[in-house]
Simulated assay, not measured.
Amino acid sequence: MSTEAKLLTAVAPVEQQHTIEPLQLRQVFGQFATGVTIVTTSGEDGSAVGMTVSSFNTVSLEPPLILWCIDKKTGCFDAFNRCQDFAIHVLAQSQQDLSALFASRGQDKFEQVAFQRNAAGVPLLEDYCARIQCRISARHDGGDHVIIVGEVTEMHTQNREPLVFHRGRYASIC
């Protein structure tokens, strides 16, 4: 072995495999700042269904596609897993309380907010930074989540700063 090869072998990093613990993984994922959204749909019985979601992303401009993810253990999973239409509401910086409300369990969230319904019956919040109405394009298994892909059918914006989530708490981009 040449002297150069011996030097390279001596300084090469040793690869280490680490166990991925859920709490540590959550902390690592928390390093990625995300926007905060509320996703809404109509249940099979016509009830208004909604939840706070930070796992939202754009997919494609042509066709216009977005995606978001839902935990299979979430109380409203069945409604979103069966729906054909939904709406994404990107929250404004001043809407931390609304985010917390829709992240909570066991209460009628819609009795505390102003909303209308679109032609498909999906509840549309009146207060938002951006609102994107979608029709289901695809659903994919994603481990303990389902990845929901929606085709954008309508969109609206209000001139407001977005609510951001980073390291387990709300943050500001300004």
Rank of each mutant, 00 (worst) to 15 (best):
K73G: 14
Q31N: 15
S55Q: 01
M155F: 15
N118V: 07
D45H: 08
M155T: 13
A10N: 11
A100N: 15
E15Q: 13
T74K: 09
G121M: 05
V149Y: 08
Q17I: 13
H140F: 11
G50H: 03
V36K: 01
M155P: 10
A12F: 08
I38R: 02
N57G: 07
G30S: 06
G46V: 00
T52N: 03
F86L: 06
N81Q: 07
F77W: 04
S60R: 06
Q31R: 11
E21V: 10
R169L: 08
G142H: 07
I38D: 01
T19P: 05
T3N: 11
L7T: 15
T74C: 15
W68L: 09
D141P: 07
K72P: 02
D85E: 15
L23H: 13
I20T: 12
Q93H: 09
D127K: 10
R26L: 02
S60L: 04
V14L: 09
Q24S: 15
G150D: 03
A120H: 05
T52V: 03
G43K: 06
V11K: 12
S60I: 08
F29P: 03
L98S: 08
Q112E: 10
R26P: 00
A10F: 12
S2I: 09
T40H: 05
E44M: 10
E161C: 11
Q16K: 14
A138T: 03
I132C: 05
T157M: 12
E15T: 15
V122K: 00
H140K: 11
E151Y: 04
T74R: 04
G106V: 12
L67I: 09
Q24I: 15
V11H: 09
E126M: 02
I148M: 10
A12G: 01
E161D: 08
D85Q: 14
F115H: 01
K109T: 04
V36W: 07
F32D: 06
Q24G: 15
A33I: 02
I132E: 06
G50S: 04
L8D: 08
N81M: 03
H18E: 05
P22S: 02
A100M: 13
D127H: 02
V11A: 10
G121L: 04
G106Y: 06
I38P: 04
L163Q: 06
R160Y: 07
C129A: 04
C134Y: 11
G35Q: 09
G142C: 05
M51Q: 06
R139D: 00
S47P: 12
L67P: 05
G43P: 01
G142I: 00
V149A: 11
Q112A: 09
A120E: 03
S104A: 15
D108Y: 09
C69Y: 03
D85T: 13
W68A: 07
Q107A: 11
R139W: 01
W68R: 02
L8Y: 11
H156T: 14
A12Q: 13
N81G: 05
